[in-house]
Simulated scan of single mutants.
Amino acid sequence: MNRGLRLACLVVALALPLPGRTATDPARAASDAAVEIEAAMQLLAEAEAAPDRVAALTETTRAFETGLAAMREGLRRVTAREAELDRELQAREGEIAQLLGTLQVMGGTGTPAVFLHPSGAVGTARSAMIVADVSRALDAKAAGLRARLEEVRVLRQLQQSASATLADGLRGVQEARTDLSQAVADRTDLPRKFTEDPIKTALLIASTETLGAFASGLAGIAEDERALDLPPVRTRRGEIPSPVRGRVLRGPGEADAAGIERPGVVVATRPRALVTSPTAATIRYRGPLLNLGNVMILEPEPGILFVFAGLDVVYGASGDILAAGAPIGLMAGQEGDLGAMLTEAGGEEAGTGRSETLYIEVRQDNVPQDPAEWFRGLKE
Rank of each mutant, 00 (worst) to 15 (best):
P51N: 05
P51Q: 03
D52F: 05
R53V: 07
R53P: 08
A55C: 07
A55K: 11
A56I: 02
A56G: 03
A56T: 02
L57T: 02
E59M: 13
E59Y: 06
E59F: 05
T60G: 03
R62P: 05
R62Q: 15
F64L: 05
E65H: 06
E65N: 06
E65I: 03
T66C: 13
G67S: 03
A69G: 15
A69K: 14
A69C: 13
A69I: 11
M71P: 06
M71C: 10
R72D: 13
E73L: 15
G74E: 04
G74H: 11
L75K: 04
R76K: 14
R76V: 07
R77M: 12
R77G: 08
V78M: 06
V78R: 07
V78H: 06
T79L: 14
T79Q: 14
T79V: 13
R81V: 01
R81C: 04
R81Q: 12
E82L: 15
E84V: 01
D86T: 12
D86F: 10
D86M: 12
E88C: 10
E88D: 14
E88H: 14
E88V: 10
L89W: 01
L89F: 01
A91C: 03
A91T: 04
E93Y: 07
E95R: 09
I96V: 05
A97H: 11
A97M: 06
A97Y: 04
Q98Y: 09
L99A: 02
L99V: 01
L100D: 08
L100V: 13
L100Q: 12
G101V: 01
T102Q: 02
T102C: 02
T102Y: 00
L103M: 06
Q104D: 08
Q104P: 01
M106Q: 08
M106K: 09
G108T: 01
G108D: 01
T109K: 12
T109V: 12
G110H: 12
A113G: 09
H117I: 05
P118A: 02
P118R: 02
P118W: 00
S119D: 14
S119Y: 00
G120M: 03
A121T: 12
A121P: 12
T124M: 00
A125Q: 05
S127D: 08
A128K: 09
A128Q: 07
A128F: 07
M129T: 11
I130G: 07
I130T: 13
I130K: 15
V131N: 09
V131S: 05
A132G: 09
D133K: 13
V134I: 15
V134M: 13
V134Y: 14
S135M: 07
R136Q: 12
R136Y: 07
R136H: 10
A137E: 13
L138D: 01
A140K: 11
K141W: 04
G144N: 10
G144D: 10
L145T: 07
R148M: 15
E151H: 02
R153D: 15
